[in-house]
């Protein structure tokens, strides 16, 4: 009975008080966003947001795709860092920050996308094994299947931001501990 009624009970409890914007955290965040917007508007370079976005797509496709190699990922990371530099020094956003500015909107997202791309490349480079959608071409079985390395990568990983975009993130591990099932290679053949 419980599973059928609990959601309805919980739905009635979800009466959230409106949070005040009169808090120091809100003010600090507002100022940080304001500062970032001013920084972006003042780069006044030559390249449009879309042109950099498309370049990001090409780098990810070429070097950080599903089949990846150590060399390719290292090259990709280099290109991504250079692209972030290009974004920070040569971006052009027309118009002003007052009112709707779609280019500014896209630029704010794009900066996150580039960092996200770097993080994906970072993680893929670190993980010296193949598993699931992460296929390191160096690590495959004779039949071309993903080859795991449970001795060294038997954990769930998470990257801890070190306070600056230029510092390498730090890996936090949570070991996997299966008590009942036996860990084995997945096999779609039989």
């Amino acid at each position: 009975m419980l599973p059928y009624t609990i959601q309805n009970y919980l739905a009635d409890q979800a009466i959230w008080p409106r949070l005040s914007t009169d808090l120091p955290e809100f003010e600090a965040t507002e100022q940080a966003v304001e500062k970032e917007i001013d920084r972006l508007m003042n780069i006044k370079g030559k390249r449009s947001v879309d042109s950099i976005h498309k370049e990001l797509g090409h780098i990810m496709w070429e070097h950080v795709g599903m089949g990846r190699t150590k060399e390719g990922l290292e090259e990709g990371l280099k290109l991504l860092k250079a692209l972030r530099q290009e974004f920070d020094t040569n971006l052009f956003i027309p118009g002003s920050k007052e009112g709707l500015n779609v280019e500014l909107d896209k630029a704010i997202h794009l900066r996150d996308f580039i960092l996200m791309g770097e993080l994906v490349a970072y993680d893929a480079l670190h993980r010296e094994e193949s598993c699931g959608g992460h296929f390191r071409e160096e690590h495959q079985t004779e039949e071309g299947e993903a080859k795991r390395d449970d001795e060294n990568f038997f954990y769930v990983g998470c990257w801890d931001y070190q306070g600056s975009d230029d510092k390498a993130p730090e890996l936090v591990k949570e070991p996997l501990n299966y008590e009942i099932i036996k860990v084995q290679q997945r096999n779609y053949k039989n």
Binding site: D50, F92, P94, G95, V102, E103
Partner: peptide, 17 residues
Amino acid sequence: LDIMNEELIGEGREPFV
């Protein structure tokens, strides 16, 4: 229209929204 907007931005103009 995307191509047009790239050209407008290239000329330093605001894109068509």
